[in-house]
Design a protein around this nucleic acid. Structure first.
Length: 491
DNA sequence: TGAAATGTTGGGGCG
DNA sequence: ACGCCCCAACATTTC
């Protein structure tokens, strides 16, 4: 009697533990583990509607993916088969060549991917091949959560409390498969498939050495994710509520890039925290868990409002006249705005592929409100630079900051980067780290070098317009300009 | 998961 | 002792 063979199609679930699809596939028999870099989307992007956007991965995400696949392959004892091309066609060919009788995967929630996967599932089932999808990435799947009247929530708190917490607890993490048995002679199976590649051949690493610094901060893969989670639980979770706002403390979990590719499931994080701290012994635990809730909310919004990656959630803003200012945009991107906390954040992003969340809000507000440049520009830059770039979180968060989104910051909430700096980076530790040319300024002027008396500036080696830019906008005037512009829209 | 303007209160200095 | 002013500290309102 022969053992049935299944294809385990890895996507955004690059882990072995708590992987429902992998467990189901292993229960069935032997597996063929597969990863496919989807290039189908790029070819048809011309005629795609807003709702079915398929994006090319950002540069930082590509770097991460390369290392994450390498790590997964190791965990699978070098059995991961990697392809580049159209998943539908490649999977079909694999099924045919291998004699597999079933395909397993965990669901993704980007609009275009949902459509694609539905089609794949239907085709297989029509051909008599089993196709099973599971929930491996979310605590609460979007389709299950609705208001009483059947429409989706638009505000976070009722969504999270009434729609999620009060209805069902998140699925408890599953034990990893007792053993993984691989299908025989995988080499023969893939030998004739042109799209078969090695991980290196996917060409995910940037040509320049831009990403070299990333590895000082990050270890992509399931093990790196577990380490970060352990670190967070031991050192930061208990003080999260207040410490998370201080960029120099690095008291956030740093799990976002790991969660994005599913190197750890939100369920594993949720229960690791819950079990460790019993019934939320302090508010920090609930605050952290609600941040996982915001991640869920982003996926929820993307599912129910699939146009949010491109269009304003609140279409009133469609007629807003954003400024086009290539020079200012460039200054923002490169951390040369002359506003220390903004520049520090943008440079952290460039150097590490990451930015502390408090600072993301500050630089976002600055771009959209002080510079009046559209959130899409910011979103695109983050998409390319962030190792945790995630369509759902990135677009929902930018719309939030811009005031165009669901349950968003109101238009009149304009961060004053100077006050934010003084409040959350009192001694300027964060600014000094990423803007070393300002490091010798006294605390009093670290966030406003333009106010430093000339003697002090000179002593600190700071010459505005030379060693560090003058502010590219006047904070007070640009604030007023934004208020006026948004006010006009309202009328 | 703001900021700034405006309003209110209460303590202390002072005539 | 009292009124007056100043101002910090806090609260409320408005954008």
């Amino acid at each position: 009697m022969t053992v049935p063979v299944s294809i385990m199609w890895f996507r955004q679930d690059l882990r072995v533990k708590d992987n429902p699809a992998l467990n189901a596939a292993c229960d069935k028999g032997k597996i063929i583990p597969v990863y496919i870099l989807d290039e189908a989307g790029n070819a048809k992007s011309e005629d795609s509607t807003e709702a079915s956007e398929v994006r090319e991965l950002g540069e930082a995400s590509q770097w991460w993916l390369h290392h994450s696949l390498t790590s997964l392959n190791k965990r699978l004892n070098d059995h991961l088969l990697v392809f580049s091309g159209d998943p539908k066609q490649i999977l079909a060919e694999l099924v045919e060549k291998s004699g597999a009788t079933a395909v397993y995967w965990n669901r993704c929630y980007e609009p275009s991917v949902i459509d694609r996967d539905k089609e794949i599932k239907k085709t297989f089932i029509d051909d008599g091949i089993e196709a099973h999808s599971s929930n491996g990435s979310l605590l609460w799947e979007p389709m299950a959560v609705k208001k009483k009247d059947g429409t989706p929530y638009r505000v976070f708190t009722p969504y999270y409390r009434k729609g999620c917490l009060n209805v069902t607890p998140p699925r408890y993490p599953q034990a990893p498969p007792a053993r993984i048995t691989y299908a025989d002679e995988l080499d023969a199976v893939v030998s004739g498939i042109a799209q078969h590649k090695t991980i290196e051949e996917l060409n995910l690493l940037p040509a320049l050495d831009w990403a070299d610094g990333f590895s000082e901060h990050w270890t992509p893969g399931e093990e790196g994710a577990a380490d970060k989670l352990q670190d967070f639980i031991e050192h930061s979770a208990r003080k999260y509520k207040d410490a998370r706002d201080i960029p120099s403390m690095n008291a956030t979990s740093h799990l976002s890039p790991h969660l994005h590719l599913g190197e750890v499931s939100p369920n594993q994080v949720w229960y690791a925290i819950k079990n460790k701290f019993e019934s939320s012994e302090d508010k920090s635990i609930d605050t952290y868990l609600s941040e996982l809730g915001w991640r869920e909310f982003s996926y929820y919004l993307l599912f129910h409002f699939p146009t949010i990656p491109k269009k304003n959630f609140n279409d009133k803003f469609d007629k807003f006249n954003w400024r086009t200012d290539a020079k200012a945009l460039k200054a923002w991107q490169t951390g040369q705005t002359g506003i220390p906390i903004v520049d520090a954040g943008m440079r952290e992003l460039w150097q590490t592929g990451y930015m502390h969340n408090r600072v993301r809000m500050i630089v976002g507000s600055f771009l959209v409100k002080n510079l009046l440049i559209s959130w899409q520009e910011g979103e695109r830059w983050f998409w390319d630079c962030l190792v945790d770039a995630d369509l759902a979180s990135n677009t929902a968060s930018w719309q939030w900051v811009a005031g165009t989104g669901a349950d968003a910051a109101p238009y009149f909430r304009i961060f004053n980067p100077l006050l934010q700096g003084e409040k959350f980076d009192k001694q300027g530790k964060y600014v000094r780290k990423y803007c070393p040319e300002l490091a010798d300024l006294p605390d009093k002027y670290i966030h406003k070098p333009w106010d430093a008396p000339s003697v002090i500036a000179k002593d600190s080696g700071v010459e505005l317009g030379k060693t560090y830019p003058k502010p590219i906008v006047d904070l007070k005037a640009s604030r007023q300009r934004a208020l006026d512009a948004f006010q006009a829209l309202k009328e």
